[in-house]
Computed example of a mutant assay.
Amino acid sequence: MNETILLDPRRWWALVVVLAATLMSIIDSSIVNVAIPSIQLELHTNTAQIQLVVVGYILAYAVGLVTGGRLGDMFGRKRMFQLGMLVFVLASLFCGLAPGPVILIFSRVIQGFGSALMVPQVISIIQVSFSPREKPVAFSLYGAVVGFASVFGQILGGILIGGNFLDFGWRNVFLVNVPIGVLALVASVPLVRESRVEGTKKLDLIGVGLLTLSLVLLTYPLSTGEDAGWPLWSFICLALAIPLFVAFVRYEQRLTLRSGDPLLPISLFIDRRFTLGLITALTFYGANAAFFFHNDYFYTGWA
């Protein structure tokens, strides 16, 4: 059949819409670092709360990413993209209006879950919307946006806070998502085509629960333990995280042997290229995030 009949003529405009979502998602993982001194000054946050403002978003995003992709396959990528965008925009609004650190942290976690719903759909939408000849161009643009956003987040944060638009100060780093997100959400209605996987797989709810709990037990005490003086509960949480993660791995292996649908196919780690790539990405993003957080928080004169 002729390719031009199958391809959506609006696909390049749809690409602009989904890349806007990618841009916002990645920027929000770093833009908050620039706002840390102002947030601490206005909301009187301690070190643990500031760390949770940063970590809460990334943890929720990481935990929900695989599940978000599976939900898109099951219920429709356009539908999950729009739902994720709506959650992301509303959470950004609550972040910008937060009266205290608790509301800000909670809103950042919800923002991360919204991002985890919409971002996995981007790759899938590109995959089903473009021809094999066009995909290298579309994915190159995606890669360029990811790289640009990683750097631009810090710059944009400085501009928004330094400009103090409408006298909102640090709140602008979150409120800027609202008009952009609303425009992208509205534009997605006519431009993004719906798609899903026929014969959808089931959600690995037990795997999601085990992985989420183990990551929370690991991350929360590392973020708050030092500020609390490393109480006994922090070491208990760290100790419990290990057997829970082992239980997650073993459950995923058993599910694979039973021809189930694991959240994380353990067989992926047999591929040496995948494992090396994962270690490289972990090293880069871990060091990069820590570097920016360390510079922005400890060398500003507000700490």
Rank of each mutant, 00 (worst) to 15 (best):
L255M: 10
A281F: 11
A281I: 05
V119H: 14
V146C: 12
P99W: 15
L183G: 04
G286H: 10
C95H: 14
M74E: 09
I126Q: 07
V146I: 12
L117Q: 11
V53K: 08
T45E: 04
H44Y: 07
G169D: 03
E194Y: 02
D261N: 03
S234M: 00
M118C: 02
V32K: 15
L52E: 13
R171Y: 07
T275G: 12
G100W: 03
A184D: 14
A303H: 14
V249T: 05
A290E: 00
R10V: 04
A184Q: 04
L244D: 09
S115H: 04
G100K: 07
T22A: 00
V89H: 01
F235M: 08
V208F: 09
G286Q: 08
V32L: 12
V208M: 09
S129V: 00
L263M: 11
F94T: 15
R254T: 09
H294N: 11
D296S: 07
P179N: 14
T67F: 07
I103Q: 03
L86R: 02
A62N: 05
V87Q: 05
L185N: 03
V197M: 06
R10L: 14
F274Q: 07
I105M: 12
S259N: 08
G96D: 15
V109L: 08
A247Q: 06
I5V: 13
Y299Q: 10
W13F: 15
T4N: 10
S115T: 03
W233A: 01
G72F: 04
T275E: 10
E134Q: 12
V208A: 13
M85V: 06
R196D: 01
F130W: 03
Q253V: 13
A91T: 01
F88Y: 11
L104P: 02
P243V: 08
P190E: 14
R11N: 06
V63F: 09
S234P: 07
A35R: 07
L52S: 03
P99A: 08
G68Y: 13
F165A: 10
R250A: 11
I39N: 09
L117P: 14
D28G: 01
S30M: 03
V176P: 09
S124E: 02
Q111A: 07
V32N: 09
G207V: 02
G169N: 08
E226W: 04
A116N: 07
L19G: 05
A116G: 00
S129G: 08
T45S: 15
Q121C: 10
L278Y: 08
